[in-house]
């Protein structure tokens, strides 16, 4: 081991191990390359080089640790990302959900909440919102707080208006927020049936039986082992016939739970847990 890249990778392993041993935050099973990019970017902003110089700093400087953990765990998303997915959800999943008297939904890795509220809007247009409870979870406390507040840049909201319509929206996205200056606020009615809670997919367990699990573009940040752990959690949480929604370029192929699910929409990565599985 003597190439620059290999030495950097060693430094990164030591730093992740340090963060875990000192504070219990476990990034050791995250996908390597995106984590490394985020880490190097955060260290560059703090003027720290080489990577291993962050090890003593992380041990003694809690503020720096918080900054680094935030940089490593924040994810960003948008309202109605992948409109065709939402269209498939309306056409192929809503009729299924409608057969349940009460519907429990787990939105795992909800980040700052854009996709949770997208789902809430869709459910209310389909007449199901009164019958649902959505557990929206994330590992990052700041993201959760943002999601709970439900205040977004008006400009990003306007950019999503067309996605909302392409996703089968029946009104105008502007009907679902109050705008003031350059901000858009989600009204409390849309938050009523959403419970925001901290949950760590790497270490925590199943907390409820669910009918629908949303976990889109979250496991792309995990390695294969952690991805399989998470998929086992989902498989355990879902009722027979429950539905799992992944991101548009994620797949159950070659995962440990592939045989437990059948695709509802191969194209949109919507899967159903086999009955009796």
């Amino acid at each position: 081991m003597d190439s620059e890249a290999e030495i950097e990778n060693l430094e990164m392993r030591l730093l992740l191990e340090t963060i875990y041993l000192r504070y219990g935050y476990d990034f050791r099973q995250y996908a390597h390359s995106s984590l490394k990019r985020r880490m190097l970017q955060c260290l560059a902003e703090c003027g720290i080089s080489p990577l291993s110089a962050a090890i003593p700093k992380v041990i003694h400087d809690r503020q720096f640790l918080d900054r680094l953990v935030t940089a490593l765990s924040v994810t960003v998303t948008e309202f109605f990302r992948d409109p065709l997915f939402y269209l498939a959800l309306r056409k192929q999943v809503i009729p299924l959900l409608a057969t349940y008297p009460f519907i429990t939904i787990w939105h795992a890795g909800c980040a700052t909440g854009e996709e949770v509220y997208s789902l809430a809007i869709l459910l209310s247009e389909e007449g199901l919102y009164e019958r649902v409870r959505i557990f929206a979870t994330d590992i990052n406390g700041q993201s959760l707080q943002h999601a709970k507040e439900g205040i977004y840049n008006l400009s990003s909201m306007l950019e999503s208006s067309q996605s909302y319509l392409n996703g089968g929206g029946q009104h105008s996205l502007a009907d679902y927020y109050h705008s003031k200056y350059d901000l858009a606020r989600i009204p409390s009615g849309l938050k009523e049936n959403i419970v925001f809670a901290a949950h760590n997919l790497a270490t925590d367990h199943v907390f409820s039986e669910t009918h629908l699990i949303f976990c889109r573009n979250v496991m792309i940040y995990f390695n294969k082992e952690l991805t399989n752990r998470v998929l086992h959690l989902f498989e355990k949480s879902l009722v027979s016939g429950g539905v799992l929604c992944l991101g548009s370029h994620e797949s159950l192929s070659f995962t440990a739970v592939e045989h437990r699910f059948t695709p509802i929409s191969r194209e949109q990565r919507i899967y159903q847990k086999k009955v009796g599985a």
């Binding site: 390597h32 390359s33 985020r38 994810t75 998303t77 573009n217 792309i220 940040y221 370029h249």
Partner: peptide, 12 residues
């Protein structure tokens, strides 16, 4: 590209 020669995506 990941060190095990698989591909990864991100929405960073």
């Amino acid at each position: 590209v990941e060190p095990d020669f698989t591909l990864a995506l991100s929405i960073d």
